[in-house]
Design a binder for these strands. Sequence first.
DNA 1: TGCGAATATCCGCATATGTGCAACTATGAA
DNA 2: TTCATAGTTGCACATATGCGGATATTCGCA
Lengths: 111, 111
Amino acid sequence: MPALYPAKAELFRTLAHPVRIRVLELLSEREHAVHELLGRIDAEQSNLSQHLAVLRRAGLVRQSRENGEVVYSLLVPAVRDLLLAGRAVLRDRVQDTAELADELDRAEDAS
Amino acid sequence: MPALYPAKAELFRTLAHPVRIRVLELLSEREHAVHELLGRIDAEQSNLSQHLAVLRRAGLVRQSRENGEVVYSLLVPAVRDLLLAGRAVLRDRVQDTAELADELDRAEDAS
DNA sequence: TGCGAATATCCGCATATGTGCAACTATGAA
DNA sequence: TTCATAGTTGCACATATGCGGATATTCGCA
């Protein structure tokens, strides 16, 4: 049995940054040139470029030159579902928190 | 509009470790006592405990004492889907790699 | 050729994360 | 109480990651 867990962990690590998540979300709508991404994401040019490099190394996106600009596109469509699944977890978790808060409200005995 | 991206990123960061992924997979089958987890995961006791703490803080798992042992259980069922989505991405990506390898094989002109 | 716009990479620094060991806490039984 | 068992936390250290500024590279065009 292969070392699967490190590979999975690495995948999640790749997604574990706001800028990279934003990039993937934008790319899951349509492909974007770097300067387009830069216009929609709050990050320095070099910083964005580094994050794009991370995504490239992870094999999630593809780089191609088109009349003078570099265009990035999503290489693995399933990434979209992964992002949605993440959103769902976030949603479920806040619900739990809300229910907990509710319970705490009902049970008046403090500390 | 809230700072959603950092929250998402934090979620993925929580999953970004082999031990934590393994724990969540085990917990998505059924609840486990700590020493059970320890028996199935290659990690020091204190190390496992720290990873469990990370999962707790993230609100993904719950801790409860049952006749002398601490039992962990999954608090957010959607985590299961998230893990599956991760698996799917991994699968798609290796397929891409395989196709690329194929193409490279067919086109014989080296470097 | 030589320029300029668009990107990528290098560098040094600051911060975050993972780890084992040791010490501490909690629980149940004698 | 006292002990043994089960688990958690604090600590110091090593490594990884993120960042902006400067520099390098690539490509289309005059």
